[in-house]
Design a protein around this nucleic acid. Structure first.
Lengths: 336, 336
DNA sequence: TTGTACGCGTTATCAT
DNA sequence: ATGATAACGCGTACAA
């Protein structure tokens, strides 16, 4: 069934069928009904490829993320897909892994599929050097680039993110206010977001004049999601580093790992050890007591990102950067 | 840049350019190089839509799942996307939610995007009645339908799954062998897979002549991933139902919920209560001690599914049904 | 309001 | 080995 078949059966031209299909324009109601009946009778649906050829778009958005099974990224992808779907866009998903070179290739690959835009999910797409981020500049000339949870100032690149710096600073201040100054800071990513969080933590410590806090900043470079490996990691730290009575982690999984460590050593949480995580993920319900964590407003971010994208695609002028404030969700692993 | 531009600049016909692009056929090396140089110089890439028009394919697979942020489904989607990508296919992701009508619509929608096949991830796409599954029959005439973790016998429908019946039976037998016969069975889905698991459990109980086990079979119909809601749920059951010293859950989250319940009531796991989960997900590392769980070989399943799909698309005769055996991964929440 | 005719960028089929 | 040309199916100026 092609548009020609339909036009023939309905006794009209393909132009009229096309007009009926695309809702618009002036078509006499009687003609419209006649055509619609034929279309429905034969369950005709226009060929997407031919349509794409003419319209230069198949209403498809490329979603790139490092690992769609990471709880945080998975949630983000889910929200984005739902939001895009609701606005008539399909989602082409690509999981790139964490290697920058591979990411670059994927961006070009997905671009060749004629997506209307590319959403980069997670801040690990933004490196520290100009050269690392060159690929984003290159692609931004073709389609708008949307960054979720990261920021990059460049034409046709739009950023939506949480103010991780302030959020982490606030979290650290909350712990400091409770009198805990020996804080173990754990992180597992040097991404844009990761760097902001660390910066916020350091700023808080410095503002209070805490000395030697650097010795308690540790980077976990093991496998993600291996909670026990993370507990082992904390255990190794505890043996060598100065004592600590608080843990702030840049990711909930690391916080849970710390709680596992505490349990192994008979430390009570939060009496002996206060713990704050980040992302407010499902993992917060995993521990007993439940994990205090920073909520970075993921759902708000994804909503805003898609709204911005729709505006951009419609040719409107939209904000280049949308920043949300995070919020400390207090649960059982902290006394404050 | 179109193929015409390139052909002009290279002083050949578009046919030759096309041949060079598609690697195939006989093109004199010198000609090939000449064309390639021009292509690279101008960074020419063929228009995907026009290509799709000619080939009737854009090498895209539709992946449908109820909720890509569910840990199990997220992992499945991740593995599938990786595997497809490695074989030159893109993934069009759709999250449908759990409503059957909506699913039906999505299937048609994604089909109109001219995907080469549709993968239905998770057994909740298969209902109990003929009528519920009619939509699958309808679509299967257009493209091959691949089922992950479910089975449906119909032409052009291919199933890859774990033998959940036997796996659950084995899990129940392990607990029964350890002398625990008062077992609380928790489930949260009546999907194809959910029904198989329940069947396996019941078979095991009946085979051992356990009486009244039905009173300890309970369906959780609350929100998924709300571990505390699940703990509340178990608490309510414990107040009314016969006592139990074992829990077998059709999903790890329910098992974790039970452990939370146990902790609240000062019950020791596994001494006072043995717990077995299902899916062997990341959640197994969440509890202390770690959760014994049934591994349903997800990675093997996804690999097999894609291999089958590639064969089908290549016109080969492939198995209609591929069944893997699950495996009980013993950890700390059981004594056996 | 409706129809004609062309363009979109490939691939495939013939010739040569 | 290479080239000319016909589909592929739709959108859309432009004409009627």
């Amino acid at each position: 069934m092609t548009i020609y078949d339909i036009s023939k059966k309905a006794g009209v031209s393909i132009a009229t069928v096309s007009r009926v299909l695309n809702g618009s324009d002036k078509v006499r109601p009687a003609t419209k009904k006649k055509v619609m009946d034929i279309i429905e009778k034969y369950e005709y649906a226009p060929n997407a490829f031919a349509r794409g050829l003419g319209l230069h778009s198949l209403r498809t958005i490329g979603i790139l993320c490092a690992d769609s099974s990471d709880p945080f990224l998975a949630k983000a992808v889910y929200y984005l897909e739902q939001e895009l779907q609701a606005n008539g866009y399909e989602s082409l998903l690509c999981c790139t892994g964490y290697n920058l070179d591979i990411k670059r290739n994927y961006v070009n690959l997905i671009l060749s599929k004629k997506v209307d835009s590319i959403i980069l999910v997670g801040s690990n797409f933004i490196g520290t050097t100009e050269e690392e981020n060159q690929y984003i500049k290159d692609v931004s000339s073709q389609v708008p680039i949307m960054l979720l949870n990261a920021s990059f100032d460049y034409p046709n690149v739009y950023s939506t993110l949480c103010d991780d710096y302030s959020s982490m600073q606030e979290a650290a201040n909350a712990m400091l206010d409770a009198g805990i100054t020996d804080i173990l800071y754990l992180y597992n990513s040097n991404s844009y977001s990761g760097r902001k969080k660390l910066g916020g933590f350091e700023a808080a410590m410095q503002a209070r004049g805490i000395c030697g806090y650097e010795k308690l900043i540790h980077f976990y470079d093991g496998e993600p999601d291996r909670l026990n490996d993370m507990a082992d990691f904390v255990e190794r730290i505890a043996k060598k580093a100065p004592p600590f009575h608080g843990v702030i982690a840049a990711d909930d999984s690391l916080a849970i790992g710390s709680i596992k460590y505490a349990r192994r050593h008979g430390l009570n949480v939060p009496q002996d050890l206060s713990v704050i995580g980040y992302n407010n993920s499902m993992l917060t319900a995993c521990s007993t007591p439940e994990l205090t964590s920073v909520d970075n407003r993921l759902e708000n971010q994804t909503h805003q990102l898609v709204q911005t994208l729709l505006g951009v695609l419609a040719g409107e002028e939209m904000p280049k950067k949308s920043v949300f404030s995070g919020k400390l969700i207090k649960r059982g692993t902290t006394l404050f």
